[in-house]
Design a protein around this nucleic acid. Sequence first.
DNA 1: ACAACATATGAATAGTTGTTCATATGTTCA
DNA 2: TGAACATATGAACAACTATTCATATGTTGT
Lengths: 113, 113
Amino acid sequence: MSECTHANHNELVIKTRDGMPDIDTMFELADFFKVFSDSTRIRIMSALFQGELSVCCIAEILNMEQSTISHQLRVLRRENLVKVRKDGKQSYYSLADDHIRQIFEMGLEHIGE
Amino acid sequence: MSECTHANHNELVIKTRDGMPDIDTMFELADFFKVFSDSTRIRIMSALFQGELSVCCIAEILNMEQSTISHQLRVLRRENLVKVRKDGKQSYYSLADDHIRQIFEMGLEHIGE
DNA sequence: ACAACATATGAATAGTTGTTCATATGTTCA
DNA sequence: TGAACATATGAACAACTATTCATATGTTGT
């Protein structure tokens, strides 16, 4: 760990540290955004914006293996971003959080779409 | 790729695909959020919310190696989330995008802080 | 009870990513 | 010009993650 020598350094370090969120909060935040960092999950959420879907529908919409989708839905479930409704053989997934749309919008704005 | 057999399947697949964003856009979106998915980068951005900082200040605030910070700042620069101002020996970094605050807020709301 | 189907899950693998170390580049000041 | 400092960067390594395959669990209709 290097030591800085320029003026006001220590003071600034302390003051900035003090204004930052709790360290655990920042780790949680990173974990939360990690869910959005994979294109398969983004595509699943994009599909679910249009309403609930069964696992095999999602698989076919994305043209991917059913087990891939199941694994990724588990990740989304773990972070409370989707909910499941079981009906017979099928599991219907839908979005569980209103923030998702807003977060998507802001991302799209940034990348300029 | 499994084939679903339940009613309305093909129609739903087509319709849903049609309502989804462009596939390239979804990949870009994932890449954008990937930047927020690491705790070191989250901590750097949290520090920068309070104003511009030199690399070595950030390193000391986070108590991490200077080179780690430099590498991560490069990632943030690549995605246009920070900008640099060079002054003598030092590089001062600051946030480059107003969306960052909003995205943070929404993440914090979701995790319930 | 059995066959067909839908979903979930464990293990293995390949690809990606964050950190560290060593070092290069560039700046300031004596 | 040389020493001290600030930052950037390449290579190596360890840790993590997404996907696939195989298979288990659970449901429906015959």
